[in-house]
Amino acid sequence: MIRVLDPGFYTTVQDRGRFGFRDLGVPVAGVMDEGSAGVANSITGNEPDDALFEVTTTGPQLEFTRETLVAVTGATVPVQLNGSDFPMNIPFQVFRGDILSLGKISEGARSYIAVSGGIKTEPVLGSRSFSKGITPWHVLEEGDELPFGETQLLHFNTAHHWKPAGLDSCLLEAYKGPEFHLPGEEEAGLLSGQPFTVSAKISRMGYRLNETLPANSHSIITSPVMPGTVQYTPGGDLIILMKDCQTTGGYPRILQLSRQSIDVLAQKKRGDQVRFKILPE
């Protein structure tokens, strides 16, 4: 078991997401930065689909009730085991009674803690990703106890030089969305011409940007959306939907981020700048 002594600011359990239920309005959820989460799983000998912790702003304090291997990747964060500093991107052993603490994230927005064997909370609709109204928990709380799988101590690796895509890059590569041509050439030109700033309105559901495009009266009949969809609201706001987003929406979908660019955005926080690069069709 892993006992949550302190949940941190906003810690959840995520895997690669919940697929096949979007026609019931069920969000995909899943890790925001797939690259960093994938590395964490890989270096602890886990499968890509194994569930792990996603940490935001300030990390949790976790007590282990049996031996395993853990690794921390993603946004830069101080890692301590029983009060001693440990490096990121390298798996290390923890024993019964050990306490793992993550401090405040200094660079980036989301860190990942993989536990060898994977976190084994009960899957709901085929996934362990926390989701409001779907899983019994939607965020880690003090006193929670989470089971984890059998440790694969034989298979592990290191990733000394791993750095999340979003720490170095601010480039969001995007395909033209279904309504790219609806706003008009001028607005489309504005998209790739200027930098945009991440606003304070950001969550696992979506990122709103500070700079706006001209207000407009474009709307569409409610239609499906996906993580990575850039919506253009009547007020001119740009909202980039992320993993916990709703399944349908009524705003024009002007761009669709590439998978890698969702990883980049997942590491951005309030005040960070991003630029769009529109990919050829």
């Binding site: 096949g20 026609d23 409610t222 239609s223 499906p224 399944t247 349908t248």
Partner: peptide
């Protein structure tokens, strides 16, 4: 992977 319907579209 999946198909998602709405009023006048299917993803």
């Amino acid at each position: 992977r999946e198909t998602v319907p709405a009023y006048n579209s299917v993803l």
